[in-house]
Design a binder for these strands. Structure first.
Lengths: 141, 141
DNA sequence: TTTACATATTCGTCAATGCGGATATAATGA
DNA sequence: TCATTATATCCGCATTGACGAATATGTAAA
């Protein structure tokens, strides 16, 4: 029997949100799917660290990933519970108030405008908001 | 200089929310101030455990306490940031969906209707929603 | 089939935190 | 003052989780 997406418990979700690095990751992928190398570039943190936190978010059911060749894209996953959806929207809205989070988003935009300047993302696929593809996010699993 | 209420960081708040016992406590005090002995009675957990979790919530800036003789009342504290306020409202709404949380609230109402049956709260001051005093919560600190 | 590159995982260490049990503190009343 | 009651804190232990460093895996390209 194919295991359907299990409901995230509130405490599990909040544990996932209880770390600065993970909040920064969610802040960046709030709008769109992003490739791992962007997170590493923007947050300027060791790649294994980023990877570990992404894995934590995935295990907590907050994000999903999709492979595209060598690259792996992460995006937020809509919880099945409407209250939880609303809550995640609120989280992102709160983060948007934070100066450091705004700076992260600004760095993302800058990196996307001049990918050639960023060693890590020079050849990586661009996020949708740059390439212009409107919401063609495929379901992964 | 009197220290004003410092802003709660998102990660700190979410850490505070990342525990089942603390969520149950918040669920109970969502509507009104409550005396510690009620938490002990309703959750049916060791008093030191309840006390530790209440202390955690207090340190995280989520609740405040007020002493009344032998008893100490806890209530949720409004964050200064409107986004955080909205978020806490959402948390409570989400919890209200949870069967176990509903059961807790039902036990609270039952305990308040027959305090003589509950050894721990036999003589404790009743919560405002029982005694009928409309929102006379005094600021503590 | 090598090589290079993107990403994930493992390992050892350390700090934070949850718990039960015991004890301390604070207010009340005899 | 002493006893009682409500609540808080401390102790020792186990678990979780964050980290850097090293290494493994998977894909593509030569």
């Amino acid at each position: 029997m194919p295991r359907t997406k299990q409901n995230v418990t509130p405490e599990r979700l909040f544990q996932a949100l209880g770390d600065r690095t993970r909040l920064r990751l969610l802040n960046l992928m709030g709008d769109q799917e992003l490739c791992v190398c962007y997170f590493v570039e923007i947050l300027n943190q060791p790649q294994p660290k980023i990877s570990r936190h992404l894995a934590y978010l995935r295990r907590a059911g907050v994000v999903t990933s999709r492979r595209e060749g060598k690259w792996i894209h992460y995006r937020m996953e809509q919880p099945s519970n409407p209250q939880a959806q609303e809550l995640l929207r609120n989280v992102l809205a709160w983060l948007a108030d934070d100066k450091a989070m705004q700076a992260d988003r600004a760095r993302l935009v800058r990196a996307c405008c001049a990918p050639s300047k960023c060693s890590l993302i020079r050849e990586a696929p661009q996020p949708a908001f740059v390439s212009g593809k409107p919401e063609d996010r495929k379901r992964s699993r």
